[in-house]
Design a protein around this nucleic acid. Structure first.
Lengths: 222, 222
DNA sequence: CCCGGTATTTTGAGTTGTCAAATATCAAAA
DNA sequence: TTTTGATATTTGACAACTCAAAATACCGGG
């Protein structure tokens, strides 16, 4: 009855892959295989299984769409994952560059009881250390429309979210004050060179950052 | 290279089963099967596997003895388990009656990094909430010789350890102030009836407890 | 010294999750 | 329309872990 951690990982990945798409859109097996680093055949097999179990709708050669049961399960995993990340940073004082990997393991091992205590202890937080929203215990996952900094024109923005887990990248960001909540000024951009010139609030010097690296940063207009 | 959580559970169980025995003693497959709730055949298969992997010495129809590699691995699991239990009680304020079950899951999912932070945060504790010693990071597991309260004669003792995980029993103990560190006076015992009369430090009334229930309590002479 | 009961091992099979490689499908280009 | 290339599915296999039940070994009493 209770999904295995393998199943949880599939569901979580499908949820992530379908974020932003219209609800009717299907996720292709290939993208799932890619995301989980599995062979396509493995994914096909599992999709049939998850369909039989009622987690999702699998239509051969079309793809897959979460059903309510799968959606609920996936959101709960996401909730655990993000609460754990915040817990590791806030309470255990772990480096934010590494908490994703840790949470990846722990998200399958924490009981509801422990998750509830953590949630309470952290004061029912709304965002994890990367700025991702933490779903409530009721399973409501609200999405915000944020813009990649790489799509913005000159102006003042609030850095809301970082959508990349790579520890080296995260360390680089933190060393330059680029953490969620900080105010950044996009002073100038050179579209031909693909470089942005930023002023990070609280930092001395301006900062040059390439378009790909700016693309992982999601901002809100101030 | 890294043991699966299944293997960790076998090793942990073998360590527990060989605690108190002389180091040359072998643990029988039957007892392992019993402890892990598996069929004997399953255990035989696994013992051969663990022998091949160098975790232990398996002698057919004799039993099994941990080798250094298996001993180390088992002690590390024990360390994780006990640190987690204490962490859950001290930091997360979970009920001590339930932390064993939680730790049983988490002990396989925590990285060394997290364990180290927890250890530090708790101030390098020596004992878990049940009074079991927590092995150091170096893998040293010291054993103390404690007496079951059911073997003691009238006198004053310190309750050091509770060697049973059953939540109902633990709740019952706590409600009567019987937690590790408390001083208890064995006022009288009725060997024929199999009942002990206790005075728990800080409690009003004396307490009657049966021999089996007293047998799970380990004490040190005051 | 054999005999019966208990503990252990063997055997054959099932489950879950995975891969490699052969095969099938489909849409877009030719 | 036919071909082609990308994507998806099928097939056969394997590794880890487990069980049920048959076969075997061991031990103590008669």
């Amino acid at each position: 009855m209770v999904p295995t951690s393998t199943v949880e990982n599939y569901l979580k990945t499908i949820l992530r892959l379908s974020a932003g798409l219209e609800p009717s859109a299907m996720v292709s097996p290939g993208r799932i295989a890619e995301a989980l680093d599995l062979t396509p055949g493995t994914v096909t097999t599992m999709m049939k299984h998850l369909d039989r179990e009622g987690y999702l709708r699998y239509q051969p050669r079309q793809g897959v769409r979460l059903r309510p049961k799968g959606q609920r399960a996936a959101v709960q995993v996401l909730r655990r994952h993000r609460l754990i990340e915040l817990f590791l940073v806030e309470i255990l004082r772990l480096d934010w560059a590494h908490v994703h990997e840790e949470a990846e393991l722990l998200e399958h091992a924490l009981s509801d009881r422990v998750v509830e205590r953590i949630d309470e202890m952290l004061g029912r937080p709304a965002y994890d250390p990367h700025g991702d929203p933490i779903p409530g215990a009721d399973g409501v996952l609200r999405e915000e429309c944020l813009r990649p900094l790489s799509d913005c024109s000159e102006g003042i923005y609030e850095l809301v979210r970082v959508v990349r887990e790579d520890p080296e990248y995260l360390t680089w960001l933190r060393d330059r004050g680029l953490i969620p909540g900080v105010q950044v000024t996009l002073e100038m951009r050179d579209r031909l060179a693909g470089i942005l010139l930023l002023k990070v609030d609280g930092e001395e010097a301006s900062l040059r950052i390439g378009e790909p690296a700016a693309g992982w940063l999601r901002v809100r207009e101030c």
